[in-house]
């Protein structure tokens, strides 16, 4: 997966034009180290999707969310996806918190860029697969965005069997482990609807 240096800088709240050669090297080193330890895993499944007003149903999941309903308006299918970089990244970040916080902050930002890049790859694959069947896809939307309640993580985890396929787990407060993990929904609609 290829990451954007500017994305990494953005996560550290640094403007691209202010980046120094030292920082650039630290980012490259972090990317190198992380690439060696990540174990990316993913799972995705497609379900029928019904949108009615601000409510929607995807497989057995019922959601009341204005932002998600309007995002998925017109979609008749939806893909739920989950992806993670694996537990090793979490351990590295914990270790760096103790020994080298500066590097820890850079690795943290690079790992966020990596999980995003990984999700981009998965999303591209899902879009390709959908296109073959005459569907176009919306961009991915995660629990916690807008008013799409984070509690719906539980639906994602049971419908996708996340733990078995990816090793991801949820806490009681719906936070994901490993920390560098993402879940998202991608709406699919018939291509002939596109013009409407």
């Amino acid at each position: 997966m290829t990451i954007e240096k500017n994305e990494v800088l953005r996560y550290m709240k640094i403007l691209p034009e202010r980046c120094t050669p030292e920082l650039e090297e630290q980012i490259a080193q972090a990317e190198d180290e992380l690439s060696r330890i990540i174990r990316p895993r993913r799972v995705w499944k497609e379900f029928p999707c019904i949108v009615e007003g601000m409510r929607l149903q995807v497989g057995n999941m019922q959601v009341a969310s204005r932002s998600l309903s309007s995002h998925l308006a017109g979609c008749s299918r939806a893909v739920l996806m989950a992806a993670t970089l694996g537990h090793e990244v979490d351990q590295l970040l914990r270790r760096l918190s103790l020994t080298d916080m500066g590097k820890g902050v850079v690795c943290q930002a690079v790992s966020v860029a990596m999980i995003e890049a990984y999700c981009d790859e998965i999303e591209a694959g899902i879009k390709q697969d959908a296109a073959r069947r005459g569907y176009a896809a919306k961009w991915r939307f995660s629990p916690g965005y807008g008013d799409f309640a984070i509690e719906h993580q539980r639906d994602f985890f049971s419908m996708l069997d996340c733990q078995k396929h990816t090793g991801m787990t949820l806490t009681d407060t719906c936070m994901m482990n490993p920390v560098k993990s993402v879940t998202a929904i991608i709406g699919l609609y018939k291509k002939d609807m596109e013009k409407q």
Binding site: M12, L23, D100, M101, G102, K103, G104, V105, V106
Partner: peptide, 11 residues
């Protein structure tokens, strides 16, 4: 000075 540098100095 950015956060990573601040923290490297701290270490």
């Amino acid at each position: 000075i950015f956060l990573p540098q601040l923290l490297m100095s701290a270490d």
